[in-house]
Structures are given as structure tokens and as C-alpha cells.
Design a protein around this nucleic acid. Structure first.
Lengths: 185, 185
DNA sequence: CAGCGCATGTAAGATGTTACATGATTCA
DNA sequence: TGAATCATGTAACATCTTACATGCGCTG
């Protein structure tokens, strides 16, 4: 059997933690993209079926509405859903799939030209810098209005920044090494 | 379409970079586990079919042998395979799937007890420390016999150490924060 | 009125894990 | 002799991404 899907718990978590008001599948997807996207991704193809499944299990409650002409289905977490979420949170987290393509290409670096590797690494380094900038901005916002956010959100945000910074430092050192190799070769 | 599998290239890379002598599927799997396992994993269920497929495409050459009574199929990379590997290395690496279950559970931390979170985080912190220890050992070995390893292998190893250390530092800070929260609450 | 964003969903297809099946050899 | 390791493979199954399908409302 393949590892059990975490999507139901992500949905339960978003519904239970992130926002007290009812959310649609569309809302959930965009909340995920706007908050936890740097360590967790979900697609519509996953979310909509899971929503139905969770409603069938009475872990969430569905309510169809027509907000200014537009049809949408809003979901709220039930007491049973809260319990299920809490039980999952207690289970030891498993490690995710390891698939670092950049590192893989660096590892096999002897089979290509140095500038190619420099290009790959530089691109990712810049992306990491953009993440640091974005996250640092969020951190300021969060610290400005502490009531709306849990300390856990701050904690994971700090983690994201710390990891991205560490990556940048290593990338810069490695880029310098690669440049030196290009010169001497 | 789902993202294209990288398994063929991993196999090609192992065969081309890691060891000059012919390798069996079994060898390849264990080499992967022993070297790149912290950023890339493959299972037998992937490797054996890919080996056949690569041989059919003439990217690798198969040779059946009976080494001291034990039957095995040894593979070597062909010139065509080398070319395919080089072409892949030039393509910009895509980002892997984001699935950090630990971070997810921390993010939803307000729905469980602090000691639960401390337990999860401590476990992973200790695992990261073990990785740092193991990698640091490998680094010494590599630096001792430089002929057998490429500078790229050293580079990725350093990256692994740097990232694990950054994680540990963040984890320690977060564990301290969590302990404080437990006390004051 | 065209295009974009909102909103929900389904289908296809590939990836990847786990478990199973088989058989030989080595070592305690 | 029994267990562990070597060695190759297949089948089942679930996950997940991508693409497609549909339709409404708002804005330029």
C-alpha cells in the first residue's frame, strides 16, 4: 500500500485553525497557496474529492450558498472533525518523499559543464532569496497583529526563513567554488 | 500528465559517475541508499523495470553473469546513455514535491498539546544530528582519498550538513519557545 | 463582448510504494 | 537447518498532476 494521503488532514487543519468562517474548496486551495505553499501543496484535483469524502464522514459540514449570484459550497469543521484532526496531530510525522533534483544534478556534475551547474544553482539561490524577502515581510505583518496568528505560524515561518538563508549561504560558497574550478580547469 | 520520472536518469548517473565497473540492479539500489539517500530515494519496484527499458533503448548494456554461482545481470552505460545523461543535466531542475509533515503539524499546533509538538520536533532534531554526524564522517573519508570522489560529491555533502545544522539550530530555538509556552500557559 | 477570475468538478495517465513470489548462497 | 542476504522481478493499489469541461459575474 502506498502511504496514506494527508490531504484530508490538511483540509481539516485549514478549516479548523486558519479561519473561523466557512470556506469553499476554492478558498481552501488559495489559503493553502498563500500560507503553507512553501512546505505543502495541494491541487484542486485532490481537494474537491476529499471535501466530499470528509462531508460523507461527517468530519465537515457542507452548506450550499449563493453569495451575490455566485454559487458556492461552504464548509465548516465539525466536533468529530476536530477530534480526528487532534488524533492525527499526535501521530509521529513521517518524512516526506526525498526528491531534490538540483542536488542530484550537482552530484552528477562531473558529466556536464561547470557553467551549467552555476546556472542551475544561481537560479535556485535567487528563488531562495525571494522566499526570504517574502517571508520576512510576512513575519513583520504577523508580529504587527498578533491576535490573528498563532505562535506556531510564526515558528514555522521562522523555520522557512532559516532554511532558505542556510541554503543561500551554502549556495554562495558552492558558486564561489565552481567559479574557481572553471578558472583553473 | 504527471511529471516525468527521474529514475532513468538516476540510474544513468549512478552507472556513469559513481562506479566505473558494471553494476547490477541490486548494486544500484544499495549504492543509492548508501550515497544519495538523504536527497533521493528509489525502490526496487522502480529500478528493475527502468533497467529493462534503458537496455531496450540502448542507453545501457546488459550482461548476464554467474559470479560464484550467483546469477546476476550487470549493466554498463553506453555512449548514447552518456549523451542522454548530459542532456538531462543541462535542463533546469524542477522543484520536487513539497510535503513537510512535521512543519504541517507544527503549523496546526494550536489544536494539540505542547508536549506532543515537543516530542515530534525533538525526534526530528535528533535525526538531523545523526545525519550531521554521519555526513561529517563521510566528509573526512572523502577528503582523505580525493581521487575516488568528485568535488561535486563533496559539495552536495557539505550542503546536506549545512541544511541539517540549520534545522537543528531552528529546532533548538523552537523547542525553547515551546517549553516556555508550556510553562506560562 | 471578450477575457479574466470565481467556482466546482471529472478523467486520464503516470509515478511510486508495498507486498508478494521465487530461488540461490552464506553463515551461525 | 534455519535465518539472513543476495538477486530479480511482478502485481496491486493509491496518490497526484494535468488537462479538460462547464458556467457565472465582473471589468475594460
Amino acid at each position: 500500500m502506498a502511504r496514506a494521503s494527508r490531504t484530508p488532514y490538511v483540509v481539516l487543519g485549514i478549516l479548523g485553525v486558519l479561519d473561523p468562517k466557512p470556506l469553499s474548496g476554492y478558498d481552501i486551495k488559495h489559503l493553502i497557496d498563500g500560507t503553507i505553499s512553501h512546505f505543502w501543496a495541494e491541487s484542486f484535483g485532490q481537494i474537491y474529492p476529499v471535501l466530499k469524502q470528509l462531508a460523507a464522514e461527517k468530519l465537515i459540514r457542507a452548506r450550499a450558498t449563493t453569495e451575490n449570484g455566485r454559487k458556492k459550497i461552504l464548509y465548516t469543521i465539525t466536533a468529530k472533525g476536530e477530534k480526528r484532526l487532534a488524533a492525527w496531530l499526535e501521530e509521529p510525522p513521517e518524512e516526506g518523499p526525498k526528491r531534490e533534483e538540483l542536488i542530484l544534478k550537482l552530484f552528477f556534475g562531473s558529466k556536464t559543464k561547470i557553467p551549467v551547474l552555476i546556472g542551475h544553482l544561481q537560479t535556485r539561490r535567487d528563488r531562495a532569496q525571494a522566499i526570504v524577502d517574502q517571508y520576512s515581510g510576512w513575519l513583520k505583518i504577523i508580529q504587527g497583529q498578533r491576535e490573528s496568528y498563532t505562535p506556531f505560524q510564526t515558528m514555522t515561518l521562522r523555520g522557512g526563513i532559516a532554511m532558505a538563508k542556510a541554503f543561500i549561504q551554502w549556495a554562495d560558497e558552492s558558486l564561489a567554488t565552481l567559479s574557481r574550478m572553471k578558472g583553473t580547469k
